[in-house]
Nucleic acid binder design. Structure first.
Length: 560
RNA sequence: GGGCGCGUGGCCUAGUCAGGAUAAGGCGGCAGCCUCCUAAGCUGUAGAUCGGGGGUUCGAAUCCCCCCGCGCCCGCCA
């Protein structure tokens, strides 16, 4: 698809540049290729050559244009536009795109790495809130994008069972009763209650310390208590993730790395670097030569390990069991993940690629599970589903309530995911109910709707045994084929840059382009030959929309 | 105080890494389109000195420097 066209253009340009005698050191490494309103691909390479050659860019472009090879596969023509070189696709390319989209709606790229993507990994002390799901949605979308790009992906949830907050959950369970609400919400209630109680009674803190020590020592009763609390909380979290079409392939518990000796080994190996020391009874790592001011405590005075110690062991394990590790982390982890990467580098261990996303806050300030100040993902999904139910009931009154419920459920999943993934990860956001409940153009239902429209046409018109792709010459038809072609380019870019929001932008553009075709190019009423060709185009567009939606984890509804 | 990130029409955002041909969308505003394949759609219109200042360049939203504002972090928490 587009990548094939692009590599042909690159080849042509390099041949022509070589023919003109330009070399890489003249600045021709950057061909300045971009999709532009003036061409399918435009090159501004002449500008880069001008200062070296001391000739005007327009003259250089003219020379390159004249040196251009004349044998093309997917390129129709190369036009000279002042200093720019404009490349256009030919009919063969458009027809090839159509054929590929019709035949192979499960296109996958050529990447082949084994990748471990760690995402969500929320502490099992309560339900996911609207901040956590930014992690989950970015993570799961990246998992899907990497798979689409050809990678073998293991999506992992790192379960923090050894932290202080989990000890507080156990203390909470000892002092308060879990009520009948959804597992993760019930856990949150005792956790919040325990934290409140601690403010009045310092003994609670000591209880938590003891739980940590006993758990690290492997005390059977404590192990049983923590594991059951963790499993209970995670079961609730999983339920929420499933509502958003998110599943993990494996769960790694922090305690694994303590029990199997990896943590001890990690501490020993760090000791060999000569950068560790005992200070105030704790074992510490000094990374000040790498710009980290404060020392990192690897073992507490009481001998127990800390989050970073266990995380180092986990990352060594990840490096050994994959070709690439990707971590999705909130902005509050920037410093610690920098420290972690530096420590790994010291030991010669491959570092993970860290995707940082900035915070989601409420209009009233930042969220906190401990303080019970958050909007849960379940609450959000419920609200969005309720709103979607009303919408679909009004639009399709002839359908059953079961239909309305099912469509609302799928729309809610999509709407929540799209709302999160459409924004670049490095933008801090404030949660906004109005925006979350808006189902217009910049939302999942917009894209799902385009897909449903395509499906509707396919249901009503019968597919012809053959068609003439050359019939598809209208502006909207050609634009649609070109937009379908870009799928591989977008997947490739999003996978390499680990930026899922590119795919969200593409999804909107694809739906928009389909809607224009839909509006101006009637299919079912067209003359026989044209109808056959347009039916094929609709099927190709349906496949492209379905692939895009699936990769975004948004249900591709056939009717709504 | 230091580090990292962000600042684009009234509001939300894409574009910034790899500088290029009129700054692209959505929401909200105004004006239109259902005897026509689902109007969760489509069309038109108004609205931006791309936080401010300096610099590099033929050319800067994009690169460099300074400043301002906002967010996150700087725990023997995770």
């Amino acid at each position: 698809m587009f990548l094939d066209f692009m590599s042909e253009v690159e080849g042509l340009l390099r041949d022509a540049l070589e023919g003109c005698g330009f070399k890489a050191e003249d600045g021709v490494n950057n061909l300045g290729l971009e999709i532009s309103p003036h061409a399918d691909l435009a090159s501004s390479v002449a500008f880069r050559l001008a200062p070296v050659q001391k000739i005007s860019p327009a003259l250089i472009a003219r020379d390159i244009h004249q040196a251009m090879p004349q044998e093309y596969k997917y390129v129709d023509r190369v036009e000279l536009a002042g200093p720019y070189l404009n490349f256009f696709m030919n009919r063969i390319f458009l027809n090839t795109v159509l054929d590929q989209a019709l035949a192979d709606d499960r296109w996958t790229g050529r990447m082949s790495q084994r990748v471990i993507v760690e995402h969500t990994s929320a502490n099992p002390d309560g339900p996911l809130h609207v901040g956590h799901i930014r992690n989950s949605v970015i993570g799961d979308t990246l998992v899907r994008i990497l798979r689409r790009a050809g990678c073998t992906v293991d999506a992992q949830y790192y379960v923090n069972d050894m932290g202080r907050q989990e000890a507080m959950v156990v203390v909470g369970c000892d002092h308060f009763q879990l009520d009948g609400s959804k597992a993760d919400h019930a856990i949150a209630k005792v956790y919040i209650a325990a934290n409140k109680a601690m403010e009045l009674d310092p003994e609670i803190r000591k209880e938590a310390d003891q739980v940590i020590q006993r758990y690290e020592a492997g005390d059977p009763e404590t192990v049983a208590k923590i594991q059951s609390a963790v499993r209970y909380a995670v079961s609730g979290i999983e339920e929420t993730l499933h509502r958003m079409n998110i599943r993990h392939d494996s769960y790694r518990w922090e305690s694994e790395f303590v029990r199997n000796g990896d943590v001890t080994e990690m501490v020993k190996d760090l000791e060999k670097t000569g950068l560790t020391e005992w200070e105030d009874g704790a074992f510490q790592l000094d990374l000040s030569t790498f710009g980290f001011e404060k020392k990192i405590v690897l073992r507490r005075t009481d001998g127990t390990s800390l989050y970073i110690t266990r995380d180092l062991a986990y990352h060594r394990w990840k490096a050994a069991n994959s070709d690439q590790a990707v971590d999705i982390l909130g902005a509050d982890h920037k410093l610690v993940s920098g420290q972690l990467c530096t420590a790994l580098r010291l030991l010669g261990i491959r570092e993970p690629e860290v995707v940082i996303f900035e915070f989601v806050s409420l209009p009233t300030g930042s969220m906190s599970t401990r303080k019970g100040k958050f909007i849960s993902a379940d609450e959000l999904l419920d609200e969005v589903e309720k709103q979607a139910f009303e919408e679909v009931r009004l639009r399709r009154p002839e359908e059953s309530e079961a239909f309305h419920r099912e469509v609302a459920r799928q729309v809610a999943t999509g709407a929540v995911r799209y709302d999160v993934v459409k924004v670049s990860a490095d933008k801090a956001t404030t949660f906004d109910w109005k925006q979350a409940l808006d189902f217009e153009k910049l939302s999942a239902p917009f894209i799902q709707y385009a897909h449903a429209r395509a499906c509707s046409i396919l249901r009503k018109g019968e597919a012809a045994p053959s068609f003439q792709a050359d019939q598809l010459t209208g502006e909207n038809e050609v634009a649609l084929i070109k937009k379908i072609a870009q799928f591989d380019l977008v997947i490739d870019q999003a996978a390499r840059e680990l930026k899922p929001h590119h795919l969200a932008t593409y999804a909107r553009e694809l739906a928009e382009t389909f809607n224009l075709f839909y509006r101006y190019s009637p299919v079912l009423d067209a003359a026989e030959e044209l109808k056959a060709a347009r039916m094929a185009l609709v099927r190709a567009a349906r496949n492209a929309l379905r692939s895009t939606l699936e990769t975004l984890g948004i249900p591709a509804l056939e009717t709504m």
